[in-house]
Design a protein around this nucleic acid. Structure first.
Lengths: 228, 228
DNA sequence: GCGTTTATCGTCGTGATGACGAAAAACAGG
DNA sequence: CCTGTTTTTCGTCATCACGACGATAAACGC
């Protein structure tokens, strides 16, 4: 293998959650060069004998402090433009994680502290390396996948109401959805959600039925955002 | 960078086409160990100063013998399980290419000759490395993307008839579609196809209008396969 | 008891779709 | 020239999904 150019391989994570009616991404502030002091996606190098999904799960656990989160993790894409890392030829495998709002504070074992940053407020702020592009791709992937998969449930706790699920769609898409039509669509799509049998109490208004995510892996027909 | 484990990085291609009413994948027969004599996806190592898309385009051109094919190329996923290549730690970035049926014979510059192999006939035949899994992922991606993108046109020549496009869908999905409803759907979806103005001649039956692919990048609403 | 809030059920019109009929436009063969 | 065949293209109709609402149910605060 010595005749082939050597690469370093990293994993980077686009970790999204919905908290306080805002879509937020997990970012770290870099404490060492390059890009010292800049915001960046959490990530790290892949071990010599480590599988790629294992490296992503390990980094996710390190950054969120949770052993086995109930969310969703999928490969997003791989970025390897020469010069994207001034330290050398580094190819990064980016992953997209969708998590429920974590009650535990985010404090990784790394020196750099991680923070939830609302994506709406990122504006013109530049991330380190090519992480702007990776984040943009992750957001687009998440928004698109809500349409034809039940992945919005990954943003919710294990048991949730239809209104909570609707808030996820509205927050990720930045749109407003009719509560009645949304309710009909969610409860009418086979396998999307399954009723628990209990209801919420103590909130304002009529108690809502509690659901868990259903067995469906694809929504037929999909939940389309209106395009106008 | 010396403190981080070194990897070799390759690109592998899932190149699909529709020919003779069959979905076919471009495969090469390996001439050197490991997996000597086995079928494998075409691919190769990424250059020391080469971007990943450039490497994929280069390999595609080498294998198909065409400088700039009119098809579609997108990143499929990255596979890096330790042990997937007996020569060492190799991470491969897989790409999915959809091409029209090439009139030119496929003869790459590599020693190993490339061949179109119908995917239906692959059956229990094992490909080298983890290429079975990569091919399966590529097929699933292609089938899914026909639903909500106009990518079926990538399987067609620059000018095509509605019937040719329908054959693509039927071949990739393995289903039968009603010609009248398909015609209504294709011509009624804005931006899917644009009429050329001319028609076919010499074929059997009524001459068909010729179309080019339209400007749309997403199909709204999507062309759903019936699930029953 | 009453207003407020939220969840859930209905209704109605519209547009997309599956199933299918029918006409149009070419050709082959008598 | 006529007829049958093939394929494209246009219509029709019932059904279903969906957007835009109205209406009711079930909690709470006062």
């Amino acid at each position: 293998m010595a005749e082939y150019p050597p690469f370093a391989v990293t994993v980077d994570l686009v970790v999204l959650t919905v908290r306080a009616d805002e879509l937020a991404v997990l970012l770290v502030r870099r404490g060492v060069p390059p890009y010292e002091g800049a915001w960046a996606l959490p990530g790290g190098f892949v071990g010599a004998d480590e599988d790629l999904p294992d490296a992503a799960v390990r980094e996710l656990a390190e950054e969120t402090g949770l052993p086995e989160p109930a969310g969703h993790l999928e490969q997003l894409g791989t970025y390897g433009r020469p010069g994207r890392d001034p330290r050398g030829r580094v190819v990064t495998v980016a992953w997209l994680a969708l998590l429920p709002d974590l009650p535990a504070p985010v404090a990784g074992t790394d020196a750099a502290a991680a923070e939830w940053v609302p994506v709406a407020g990122l504006g013109r702020r530049r991330l380190a390396f090519d992480h702007d592009r990776i984040l943009a791709d992750g957001l687009e992937r998440a928004r698109a996948k809500l349409e034809y998969t039940p992945l919005a449930t990954a943003f919710c706790p294990a048991e949730f109401t239809v209104a909570q699920l609707r808030t996820v769609y509205e927050t990720v898409w930045g749109t407003h959805l009719d509560p009645r039509n949304f309710h009909r669509k969610v409860t009418g799509t086979p396998g999307f959600v399954t009723p628990v049998g209990r209801s919420t109490e103590g909130d304002r208004g009529r108690p809502a039925q509690l659901f868990r995510r259903g067995p469906a892996t694809l929504l037929h027909p999909p939940m389309l955002r209106q395009q106008r």
